[in-house]
């Protein structure tokens, strides 16, 4: 019983937490005298809804990752800025990346601007993004919605086998 409860609690905890995400497709790259900046966006293809923006900052000289830059992300469209976020390592799984989560409010054309500052050095890189319509909630959460069918179906098979 206690083992079951520990398992149940751990399961609920596991479901309740979300992992940091990063990666995705490269959407822009820029280089200054000192820095090389690469911007990734996930999901691929981009959809309306939550999106992960990850940024890799490298030294232009030796290609080494730079971990102490300040990175900000700006999502905008013709009407103005809709989301602004600071990207950092805490939100990234790959600790060489700076990551931020932004909400893409609607499908259509968007502009993403990433500003990287390190000391006197500042690099800005922009990308035009096209977001597809967001996935409907039942599609996003289909495994959870269909779970009872699987369990109840297995239970019925079990009962049928027990009977026969």
């Amino acid at each position: 019983m206690s083992g079951f409860r520990v398992f149940a609690a751990a399961t609920l905890l596991a479901v309740a937490t979300t992992a940091g995400a990063d990666g995705g497709a490269v959407v822009a790259q820029a280089e200054s005298d000192a820095l090389v900046v690469t911007v990734f966006v996930a999901p691929v293809p981009l959809r309306a809804g939550p999106a992960d923006v990850s940024v890799l900052v490298q030294s232009a000289g030796d290609g080494n990752s730079i971990l102490d830059a300040e990175v900000s992300v700006l999502l905008s469209r013709e009407g103005g800025v809709v989301a602004r976020a600071y990207a950092d390592h805490a939100q990234a799984t790959n600790q060489l990346l700076y990551a931020a989560r932004v909400e893409v409010p609607a499908p259509g054309a968007w502009r993403l601007d990433v500003a990287v500052e390190r000391g006197e050095e500042r690099v800005t890189v922009g990308a035009a993004l096209k977001a597809a319509p967001g996935l409907a909630a039942p599609v996003r959460f289909w495994p959870w919605v269909l779970l009872p069918i699987v369990v109840a179906g297995s239970f019925l098979v079990h009962q049928w086998l027990s009977d026969s």
Binding site: F7, A14, N64, S65, A92, T93, N94, L96
Partner: peptide, 23 residues
């Protein structure tokens, strides 16, 4: 080296996976 250190710290936080494997 801080870059190596950061790279080695890049573990995925996957409580689901951990719970399943531990169980």
């Amino acid at each position: 080296n801080p870059v190596v250190s950061a790279a080695l710290a890049s573990w995925r936080y996957e409580p689901w996976l951990f719970v399943c494997l531990a169980t």
